[in-house]
Nucleic acid binder design. Structure first.
Length: 859
RNA sequence: GCCGAAGUGGCGGAAUUGGCAGACGCGCUGGACUCAAACUCCAGUGGGGCUAACACCUCGUGCGGGUUCGAUCCCCGCCUUCGGCACCA
């Protein structure tokens, strides 16, 4: 047995750099792809893909990254021990604002800052001992990557899934640029705090709404995702079922107000409603201020001026302000009427800004009796409220009038032939009845909007489109990709993309006719880059395709994806969308990219999120320098359940550091003291002749193996796995102190316990695992199979049960592990501490739970 | 407002299927080692009561009820904190 480590002090720095060098030199964590055609297609059963969300390279890695990558690393190492080929790659989400803002400030190219940050984070991750196949590194801002982002865009474009349209966007008047939704914080620009305005601009969109239903349905295809993430996406997609109902516009009554009869004669407006059962209670009608019919309706009418004034005011109000729920409802009567299709009655048409143009049809039927918003509006403008769903008494005054709206279930009333139907029946019957007359149909609506992907920014992948005077919009041909970002000097946005200033780049020739043409100057949202990077990892060196089909088929989908919950909606839904499109294009064989998802909690410090401005940052580099990577890794997972937020505690990491020191001394001292059996193989022991103490340690060892395996492999409870390993170390220490290492069989059990402990600890503290493992005779501990629990030694021979009288523990009894219930009960009743409670009492009930407790109920 | 998650010692947390609440770690207290300190090691550590001591009793998982032989766990009603959505017809 190797002994040269014995007696040495625990020196994390020396150990860690030694092993990191060995792993790098031996390319220990590099995995090969299967040879093309060497195996049938489809996901390899021997292949596991473990992936953490790749970092955005701004400056350096923070503790959240450390937690993320450590967690993924533990799973990757664990799966390797289980005999899997593990793909565990790393890359950088490198386009985006951070480097661009630095460029604006300094005038130096964003690529410089990006590459600097990548170098830093790269070094930090290597120093943490994360087992990554660095040969697969992907950087989204490099041309060899974004060439394929552009190529994918064009596949979408050719399928009609990428298109241009005019749309209101977030506009910062100070920065002179369009902002992404995520750059708008509480209605203001995140950079300069200026209130964001809505501005109509022509923008590029992905048609994600076409996939709304599949994005919902395919939640069933996910193996293990946090329920709350699914709920958040479900709400975001926001599916509603109901009906489209056509309302006719009543002609202007010439006798009234002397209006003209021509305005919008014969016009019809469709509304979407989830409650067609309440149609008899629709007492007024509302159009969104932006509704195209508004102008036509009021043209030449007495109310025209006031309506136009209202519309102009609504348009000038920011979206945030307009949609604030605290704001009182406002609106204006148009002077016109619609015809309720079920009652035939004329109902007034209003324009009100609580009706949104971009949901449904931009028009609603208002049912004040059964909708809170409509009720508030009706009260303010003195409109009629009709009860059409039987409402509870507390909604009505003593005369039976509704004093608050009732949105719940109930029977239809005041609804003609539909009276007495339930809400659910009413929805169907009313819709069917109108459908027969061609006035309605069943309909579905989603809150989900198409994905606005164009940005008037420099640091992104250029959208590969060329505008030709003759041919119009032309896709850049594949052989002209990538469309490289031109070098420019002024990165500041000026209302249009900084790329527009690169005249030599913008002016090009049409790929179709060769005539003069201009390039699209917008770049893509960085979420486009990150929607497919996990596929690129399968074959990042391929310069002729976005990905090698054999490799993607072999590795994907991702078995375990790990990242922050802040990506619950955007990144994860966009990636799901991308995968479905690529599936439809026949490029991949799976419809969901991430089978299992784990969302980790955040790390706080001194009661707040760590941030440079608050000055409460714990630097990973500093901690690694002080305690070593193993301690930092183990501590971030010992803090609490990985999915929960946790507060960094300076004394907490010292505790973990001390624990690793105890393990180190335990192993090296045992070697020095000759407590361990020699030889590389696990020493044999005679089961029958084990002493009680030996057997107890053996059982503990097996129990900890069992618990650790489940905690890492199934429960993601790294904190309790570590706690169990600590218990094992404590038990080993007690056993050694009691002289277990003196006898040969004791040495065998101790050796087994100690080797097992080091193997269990290795995923958490891989450097210490490698070093102590080497001393204990493992050549490459990261490569040995995971320990398995021996079922013969999982349970102690005897167990101590609690004995309760009326549910209170009064004594304990030691019985054989497999003792029959009757024997347990008899033994329990014979206990002196129990007998006194039974004396003179009547036993009402006796409960025996083998392995747990006894409860005797007396009266 | 709606939806979701959480609430356990001085602190982080554990209790996996309704079965001994507080594993493990931090902190704290006492002791050993030391000239001394740090490190390390040993012992103790939920609150209250009682005892010379061992022991024993009692309360206790946000609050109030319920189901059960038995509830941190299940049900009902509240409170607080955090997260998401927020006029989506």
């Amino acid at each position: 047995m190797a002994r040269e480590g014995a007696g040495r002090k625990y020196d994390p720095e020396a150990i860690e750099t030694r092993w990191q060098q060995i792993w790098a030199e031996q390319k220990t964590f590099v995995v090969d792809n299967p040879e093309p055609g060497s195996r049938p297609g489809g996901k390899g059963s021997d292949a596991t893909y473990v992936l953490e969300m790749f970092p955005y390279p701004s400056g350096s890695a923070h503790m959240g990254h450390v937690k993320n990558y450590t967690m993924g690393d533990i799973i990757a190492r664990f799966r390797r021990h289980q005999g899997q080929k593990v793909l565990h790659p790393m890359g950088y989400d490198a386009f985006g604002l951070n480097s661009e803002n630095m460029a604006i400030k300094t005038g130096e190219p964003p690529a410089k800052f990006t590459e600097e940050a990548i170098t830093t984070i790269n070094r930090q991750l290597r120093r943490l001992g994360v087992s990554i196949d660095w040969t697969r590194e992907v950087v989204t801002s490099r041309p060899e990557y974004y060439k394929w982002t552009q190529w994918l865009f064009l596949q979408f474009y050719k399928k009609g899934l990428a298109y241009k349209k005019e749309a209101p966007v977030n506009w910062c008047p100070s920065c002179q640029t369009v902002l992404a939704n995520e750059q708008v914080v509480e209605g203001s620009c995140e950079r300069c705090d200026t209130v964001v305005e809505a501005k109509k601009l022509t923008q590029w969109f992905f048609r994600i709404t076409d996939y709304a239903e599949r994005l919902l349905q395919d939640f069933d295809k996910l193996e293990s995702w946090p329920e709350r993430v699914i709920t958040m996406q479900r709400n975001w997609i926001g599916k509603s079922t109901g009906a489209d109902v056509v309302f006719a516009i009543a002609p202007v009554d010439e006798a009234e107000e002397g209006g003209t009869a021509r305005a919008a004669a014969g016009a019809e407006v469709t509304v979407f409603t989830t409650r067609p059962d309440t149609l008899f209670g629709a007492t007024f009608f509302i159009l969104a201020p932006e509704h195209p019919l508004v102008d036509e309706l009021v043209a030449g009418q007495p109310d025209e001026a006031q309506v136009k004034k209202y519309v102009a005011k609504a348009m000038a109000t920011s979206h945030i302000e307009r949609s604030s729920i605290e704001k009182e409802k406002t609106g204006v009567f148009t002077g016109r009427f619609a015809v309720n299709p079920v009652t035939g009655g004329k109902i007034p048409i209003f324009v009100a800004d609580y009706v949104l143009m971009d949901y449904g049809t931009g028009a609603i039927m208002a049912v004040p009796g059964h909708d809170e918003r409509d009720f508030a509006f009706a009260k303010k403008y003195g409109l009629e409220v009709v009860e059409v769903i039987e409402s509870p008494d507390e909604c009505k005054d003593c005369e039976g009038n509704l004093v608050q709206p009732y949105a719940g279930d109930g029977l239809l009333v005041n609804s003609g032939q539909f009276d007495g139907l339930s809400k659910a029946e009413g929805i169907v019957k009313v819709t069917e009845w109108l459908k027969e007359q061609g006035k309605a149909d069943f309909a579905v609506n989603y809150k989900l909007r198409d994905w606005l992907l164009s940005r008037q920014r420099y640091w992104g992948a250029p959208i590969p489109i060329i505008y030709c005077e003759k041919c119009g919009e032309v896709a850049v041909p594949d052989d002209q990709l990538p469309v490289l970002l031109p070098a420019i000097t002024d990165y500041a946005p000026k209302g249009k993309s900084p790329l527009a200033a690169a005249e030599h780049w913008v002016n090009t020739t049409c790929p179709q006719c060769g005539g003069p043409a201009r390039r699209e100057t917008d770049t893509m949202d960085t979420f486009v880059d990150s929607s497919w990077y996990y596929m690129r990892y399968a074959s990042p060196w391929r310069s002729d395709v976005a990905f090698d089909k054999t490799a993607v088929d072999y590795w994907l989908p991702v078995d375990q994806y790990i990242g922050g919950v802040e990506h619950a909606i955007l990144h994860l839904m966009y990636s799901r969308f991308f995968t479905k499109v690529l599936y439809d294009l026949g490029l991949v064989a799976f419809e969901e990219p991430f089978k299992r998802l784990f969302t980790q909690g955040m790390i706080y410090y001194k009661g707040a999120k760590m941030s440079k401005s608050k000055g409460n940052v714990v630097s990973p580099d500093e901690m690694v320098g002080k305690f070593g990577a193993d301690s930092v890794r183990a501590y971030v997972l010992f803090m609490g359940p990985a999915e929960s937020d946790a507060e960094w505690n300076d004394q907490g990491i010292e505790g973990v550091y001390r624990f690793l020191g105890r393990v180190w001394r335990q192993v090296t001292d045992a070697l020095d003291d000759g407590d361990l059996a020699t030889g590389a193989a696990d020493p044999a022991f005679d089961e029958a002749s084990l002493t009680a103490a030996e057997r107890a340690l053996l059982v503990k060892t097996n129990q900890v193996v069992q618990k650790t395996t489940v905690d890492i492999g199934e429960r993601f409870r790294f904190n309790t796995a570590l706690a169990a390993i600590m218990e094992l170390n404590n038990d080993i220490a007690s056993a050694r102190a009691a002289g277990l290492g003196a006898a040969a069989s004791g040495q065998a059990v101790l050796t087994h316990a100690m080797k097992t402990m080091v193997r269990l600890l290795e995923p958490f503290a891989p450097h210490m695992g490698a070093e102590l493992g080497e001393m204990l005779g493992f050549e490459a501990i990261w490569d040995v199979p995971w320990p398995t629990a021996d079922p013969r030694f999982l349970a102690a021979d005897t167990v101590e049960l609690a004995v309760q009288i009326n549910g209170k523990v009064r004594d304990r009894v030691e019985v054989a592990q497999d003792a029959p219930a009757a024997d347990i009960l008899a033994a329990a009743k014979a206990l002196p501490g129990v007998e006194k409670y039974l004396e003179g009492k009547e036993v009402v009930k006796e409960v025996v739970v083998p392995g747990r407790l006894v409860n005797i109920v007396v009266r």
